[in-house]
Design a binder for these strands. Structure first.
Length: 481
RNA sequence: CGGGCAGUAGCGCAGUCUGGUAGCGCAUCAGUCUGGGGGACUGGGGGUCGUGGGUUCGAAUCCCGCCUGCCCGACCA
């Protein structure tokens, strides 16, 4: 009770409170199955949960993903381009974050967490404080110190790196974090796809030479391909503008969707490649080179980099043309920041060397919208299994019926953390409509007739297939995926 | 930042032109009947009409300012 400064959100605080978004996204809290005596277990029973679905579309939402995210109770808008994430939406965000994390770790990435607020001084050192423009949200604290809400973290990570790394022997380093960013977009739109505040994974690499940086870049390329495949979407890497550096070391990853902001042209073969079972030895340069050469032999470019000559070489039946949503961007930029900020390590001959850097972003919150753009129908969202907020919804068609209730409880107890239990007393139609809207991969439908015979009806959201199964069979099918 | 549109109940909207007791559908609450694709009936609750000023006996409605949001374009993960 002595110091409640940061415990009472409304009280004027003598010290600035920690912005809520600097709290790490890393905790997935296991919910205990038991309950305290006398209290009710509140987990994901729909009758007790905060998953407010909307029957009608709020007038501000135009495109499918924005409409569906509001209707399915994933988000609520707080201000233009700024959203609160509700329980179901937050689960998706975490599932995406977790897959991203695993694939970054798999190529030797180390997770850190840098703050959202940064001192202006850091950006003055790189020269970007003046260069960045009005997209940067500038803040002044009570001591009249200039701060900014970070739109990206190159300066900060470079400074952090320079403080501790002294020798080429400590390279390479790949550091990443998943953190909220802010860019004061002139015109936020499309819900979370073009928000001002957004959750992003950004990774930064440090290498001793150009050759080593290229290997790192290629490893990251592979990690991205695997990440997007695991997320259940096809994000195609396209040659992107490299700016003043030149070379072929910048790629944007785009998900094909009619509402995309860029025009895209690519070889359809790219959609058939399987990166999860392709054995690439990421510790071997030659192996990485083979992988990269193979990948880049297929044509893929946004309209900005499109070349009719090369495009005409792609067999006509394989040409894919449309619009794409950018969900990732990888970039090699050499010594731009290490040089500007005078960060060096000792090289093999003991002379100081500015490390070669790259940065690699994935728009985590944007992906939620982008995935929905790619995965929905008239009735609602169709979540890929890997990111769905819940593996399945248990639909009790007759809440209050002893047999149905007991049956549903039995199902729910099998995986209370992965299931949503619709125990509301609403009519079947309303429950079906909400289930389709929220897009759970599976629906476990329990009605009086089936329950008596020990059968549950399993519906696959994506295909509409239905199966009459025993409890064990149904659980095996749902949980094995 | 230019151009356009809009703020009335939780959501979707009517009412504004022509000033006169603030409405409809859905949602919500109580009850009855229902019970496999947003069911029916009865009865309730909920709005200082974005905001500040002005005109008027009287303003959601007319006039002026401001704020907020959306759409189209130029710019970005």
């Amino acid at each position: 009770m002595r110091d409640r400064r940061c415990l009472s959100p409304d009280a004027p605080s003598p010290l600035p409170c920690v912005p809520p978004h600097t709290q790490p996204d890393v905790f997935i809290r296991p919910v205990t199955a038991g309950s305290f005596s006398g209290t009710r277990i509140v987990t994901m029973r729909l009758s007790r949960s905060f998953l407010p679905t909307l029957r009608e579309t709020p007038s501000e939402a135009q495109i499918a993903s924005h409409r569906l995210m509001l209707r399915a109770g994933l988000i609520r808008q707080t201000a233009s381009g700024i959203y609160a994430w509700l329980p179901a939406g937050l689960r998706v965000l975490r599932h995406i974050g977790q897959i991203v994390r695993e694939e970054q770790d798999a190529i030797g990435g180390q997770e850190v967490l840098m703050p959202t607020l940064q001192p202006a001084e850091l950006w003055k050192r790189s020269g970007r404080y003046d260069a960045y423009g009005p997209e940067m949200l500038r803040i002044r604290d009570r001591h009249e110190r200039d701060l900014l809400y970070g739109p990206t973290n190159e300066e900060m990570i470079t400074d952090l790196f320079g403080q501790s790394i002294r020798s080429y022997k400590e390279l390479p380093q790949v550091l990443y974090h998943i953190q909220w960013k802010f860019r004061d977009e002139v015109r936020p739109r499309f819900g979370v796809m073009r928000g001002r505040e957004f959750l992003m994974k950004d990774a930064y690499s440090f290498d001793i030479s150009y050759e080593a940086a290229v290997d790192t870049y290629r490893r990251m390329m592979l990690a991205y391909l695997r990440t997007f495949q695991r997320l259940g979407v096809r994000a195609v890497p396209m040659v992107a503008d490299t700016g003043p550096i030149g070379g072929d070391l910048s790629h944007e990853f785009l998900i094909l969707a009619p509402t995309g902001e860029s025009g895209v042209f690519y070889d359809g073969e790219l959609e058939t490649l399987d990166w999860l079972s392709d054995p690439v030895d990421i510790s071997d340069s030659a192996s990485l080179d083979k992988f990269f050469s193979n990948l880049t032999s297929y044509y893929a470019a946004t309209d900005e980099k499109h070349e009719e000559g090369a495009w005409s070489q792609v067999p006509e039946s394989r040409r894919r043309e449309g619009r794409g949503i950018e969900v990732g961007h990888i970039f090699y930029f050499g010594t731009k920041y290490t040089r500007a900020m005078d960060i060096t390590v000792a090289g093999p001959d003991s002379t100081p060397v500015c490390p070669e850097m790259g940065s690699y972003g994935i728009g985590v919150s944007r992906l939620v919208g982008a995935i929905i753009e790619a995965c929905h129908d008239e009735a609602g969202i169709i979540w890929p299994d890997s990111v769905a907020p819940f593996k399945a919804v248990i639909i009790n068609l007759k809440t209050g019926d002893a047999t149905c209730d007991a049956f549903c409880e039995q199902l729910y107890a099998a995986a209370p953390e992965q299931f949503l239990y619709d125990d509301r007393t609403d009519r079947a139609g309303a429950k079906f409509a909400d289930a389709d809207l929220m897009g759970h991969p599976w629906q476990l439908i329990v009605g009086p007739r089936g329950a008596k015979e020990g059968k549950v009806e399993l519906k696959r959201r994506a295909t509409g297939e239905r199966f009459e199964l025993s409890v064990d069979e149904a659980l095996a099918k749902v949980l094995d995926r």
